[in-house]
C-alpha cells in the first residue's frame, strides 16, 4: 500500500506539469487558432495561402517532431543558447513544450473555427449590417457566440486529445506525468505506475467531459 502511495505522490508531481502544459496550450492555442482561421479566410490570396500551408504542415507532421524543432531549433538554426532561459518556475524545456503544443493545436482549432464561421448564414451578417453594427460588433456580438455553440463538440474532441497528447512532452524530458510513470515503472519493474497514470488521464478527461457537457447544455437554450 505504501508503494502505491509513493507512486501516487510522484505521479501527482508530474501531473502538475501535465496540467500546466494543458492549460497554457488551451489559453494560447484558442485565440491563436481564431487568428489563423481569420488569416486562412483572408480575401488576399497570398495571405490565405500562407495560412493554408501553415495549417497543412502543422497537421501533416508529427507533433513530437514539432516539439523537437521548437526545442532544438533556436540553437541549431540561430545559435541561440536556450539553456539559461527561465520564466518564473518554467525552464525552456517546458516553454518549448507549450509553444510546440500551442502552434500545433492552433492549427486544428483554426480549421474547426473556420468551419464554424463559414457555416454561419449570410443573413446574420446582413441583418447586423443594416442595423448599423460595426464589423467588430457584428463579429463579437452576433457571429462569435453562435460559432462557439456550433464548434463546441469538435473543440471537446480536441481538448480530450490534448490531455492524452501531453504525454508527448517526454521527448523534451519534461517530467510530466507520463515521464514520471515511465521512470517509476522501470525503477520498480512494474506496470502499476502506468495503470495509475492511466487512471489519472481517464479521470481528468472525465472531468473535462462533464464541464464541456454543462457548457453545451447552457448554450442549448436556442436552436
Amino acid at each position: 500500500m505504501d508503494k502505491l502511495g509513493a507512486i501516487f505522490t510522484q505521479l501527482l508531481n508530474g501531473f502538475g506539469f501535465t496540467l500546466g502544459i494543458f492549460f497554457f496550450t488551451i489559453i494560447f492555442s484558442i485565440p491563436l487558432g481564431l487568428l489563423i482561421a481569420k488569416g486562412r479566410m483572408a480575401k488576399n490570396k497570398i495571405v490565405s495561402a500562407i495560412f493554408r500551408v501553415y495549417i497543412s504542415i502543422m497537421r501533416g507532421t508529427p507533433l513530437m517532431l514539432q516539439l523537437l524543432l521548437v526545442y532544438f531549433g533556436p540553437y541549431y538554426v540561430f545559435k541561440v543558447s536556450t539553456g539559461s532561459i527561465q520564466v518564473g518556475p518554467f525552464n525552456y524545456r517546458f516553454i518549448a513544450t507549450v509553444i510546440g503544443f500551442s502552434l500545433n493545436y492552433a492549427a486544428y482549432f483554426a480549421e474547426i473555427f473556420r468551419g464554424g464561421i463559414q457555416s454561419m448564414p449570410k443573413g446574420q451578417y446582413e441583418a447586423a449590417q443594416v442595423l448599423g453594427f460595426t464589423p467588430l460588433q457584428t463579429y463579437f456580438k452576433i457571429i462569435l457566440p453562435q460559432v462557439v455553440k456550433r464548434v463546441l463538440p469538435s473543440v471537446t474532441n480536441e481538448v480530450i486529445t490534448l490531455v492524452k497528447d501531453t504525454s508527448l512532452a517526454q521527448v523534451l524530458a519534461v517530467t510530466e506525468m507520463f515521464t514520471a510513470a515511465s521512470k517509476l515503472a522501470s525503477a520498480q519493474v512494474s506496470v502499476v505506475p502506468f495503470v495509475v497514470a492511466g487512471v489519472f488521464y481517464y479521470v481528468f478527461n472525465g472531468i473535462i467531459e462533464i464541464i464541456m457537457h454543462s457548457i453545451e447544455k447552457k448554450m442549448s437554450y436556442y436552436q
Binding site: 448564414p121 443573413g123 446574420q124 446582413e126 441583418a127 447586423a128 449590417q129 443594416v130 442595423l131 448599423g132 453594427f133 460588433q137 456580438k141 452576433i142 457566440p145 453562435q146 455553440k149 436556442y222 436552436q223
Partner: peptide, 30 residues
C-alpha cells in the same frame, strides 16, 4: 443606415438573443 429599416423574407433574427435583445441591441449599442 440609421435612416432605414429592412425586413427580410426569412427574418434573420439573432437566434442567441431573446426577443427583447433582438429589438434593443442596436438601440443600445448603435
Amino acid at each position: 443606415r440609421s435612416r432605414f429599416g429592412l425586413v427580410f423574407q426569412n427574418f434573420n433574427l439573432f437566434p442567441h438573443f431573446s426577443v427583447r435583445r433582438n429589438i434593443t441591441e442596436a438601440l443600445i449599442h448603435v
